[in-house]
C-alpha cells in the first residue's frame, strides 16, 4: 500500500510502472527526498485521489469502489482524459515506431512484420475512434449533467440527450478495446517466426503488456466508477424534471 508519508522516490523503487500514472498528475521526476504528501501539496494535486489511483494500479486486487465513487467527477474525468492523451499521443505512436524499427532491422521475412504492423494500425484506428467518442461526446455530456444538476436547472438539450443516449446505452456499447492487444501479444509470443532482432521484439512485447494493463485499469474506472456515478446524476436530473412539472 502506497501512503502519503512515503518518499516519492521510494514509491518508484517499489513499482516503477507507476511513473506514467504519476506523470498524468503533472508530477515529473526529480523528486529529491520529498514525500508524496509534500509533492502533492506543491503541485496542487488531490492526494486522496492520487493515492487511490496509484494503489489500484499497483495492486490489482485493491479496488475501493465506494471510496472512488465519492470523488469529484471533474477529478475523475480529468484523469481519464490525461490517460487518453497518453495512449494516443505517446504510447501507441511509440509502439508503432518500434514496429517500424523492427521491420527495418529484418532482412528476411519482412512480410511477417508487415502483417503485425497492419494489425496494429487497425487497432490504433479502433482505439482512436473509441477515445474520440468519449472525449467529444460522452465526457462533455457528463460535464453538462454535473453542471445542470448542481444549479438545479435541466436544459432541453440535456433532457433530449438523456432520453436518446443515456449512460446506460454507452455502458452496453462500451467495448473491450484490449481484446486485439491480447491477440497481438499472443501472436508475437506464440506464432511469429522469431525476428533477427529479438531484443527489440521483447521490448515491443513488454510495452504491449504495459499498455494492456493500463487500458484494463482505465476501462475498469469507466465501467465501474464513472458509469455508476453518472447514473446517479441522471436520476437526480430526472427528479428535478419531475418537480418542475
Amino acid at each position: 500500500m502506497i501512503t502519503g508519508s512515503m518518499k516519492m522516490a521510494d514509491v518508484i523503487h517499489l513499482d516503477h510502472s507507476l511513473l506514467p500514472i504519476i506523470n498524468r498528475f503533472g508530477i515529473q521526476l526529480g523528486f529529491g527526498d520529498k514525500d508524496v504528501e509534500e509533492i502533492c501539496r506543491e503541485k496542487n494535486v488531490n492526494i486522496d485521489f492520487f493515492l487511490e489511483i496509484l494503489n489500484i494500479f499497483h495492486d490489482p486486487n485493491y479496488f475501493p469502489k465506494d471510496h472512488l465513487q465519492e470523488f469529484d467527477m471533474e477529478l475523475i474525468l480529468t484523469y481519464l482524459e490525461k490517460t487518453h492523451e497518453f495512449y494516443l499521443e505517446y504510447e501507441v505512436p511509440k509502439i508503432e515506431s518500434l514496429i517500424n524499427e523492427l521491420i527495418s532491422s529484418c532482412e528476411i521475412r519482412k512480410e511477417n512484420i508487415y502483417l503485425l504492423r497492419n494489425f496494429f494500425m487497425n487497432y490504433k484506428e479502433e482505439l482512436t475512434t473509441h477515445i474520440k467518442r468519449e472525449d467529444e461526446t460522452v465526457y462533455p455530456y457528463i460535464r453538462q449533467l454535473v453542471k445542470e444538476v448542481q444549479i438545479e436547472k435541466i436544459s432541453e438539450s440535456l433532457k433530449a440527450q438523456m432520453n436518446e443516449y443515456p449512460i446506460e446505452a454507452f455502458a452496453v456499447e462500451h467495448d473491450n478495446v484490449e481484446e486485439k492487444l491480447f491477440d497481438l501479444k499472443n501472436i508475437i509470443i506464440k506464432y511469429l517466426p522469431p525476428p533477427k532482432n529479438s531484443n527489440l521484439c521483447n521490448f515491443i512485447l513488454f510495452r504491449l503488456f504495459e499498455l494492456e494493463k493500463d487500458l484494463n485499469d482505465h476501462a475498469r474506472l469507466e465501467d465501474v466508477i464513472l458509469i455508476d456515478k453518472v447514473k446517479e446524476l441522471e436520476k437526480g436530473a430526472k427528479e428535478l424534471l419531475k418537480l418542475k412539472k
Binding site: 502483417l115 487497425n122 481484446e179 491477440d183 501472436i187 506464440k190
Partner: peptide, 17 residues
C-alpha cells in the same frame, strides 16, 4: 486453442502459417 480472440488476429495467424 490458439489464444486469439478476434477475426483480425485469426487472419494474421492464418497468413503467418
Amino acid at each position: 486453442k490458439l489464444g486469439i480472440k478476434t477475426v483480425a488476429g485469426l487472419t494474421v495467424y492464418a497468413l503467418l502459417n
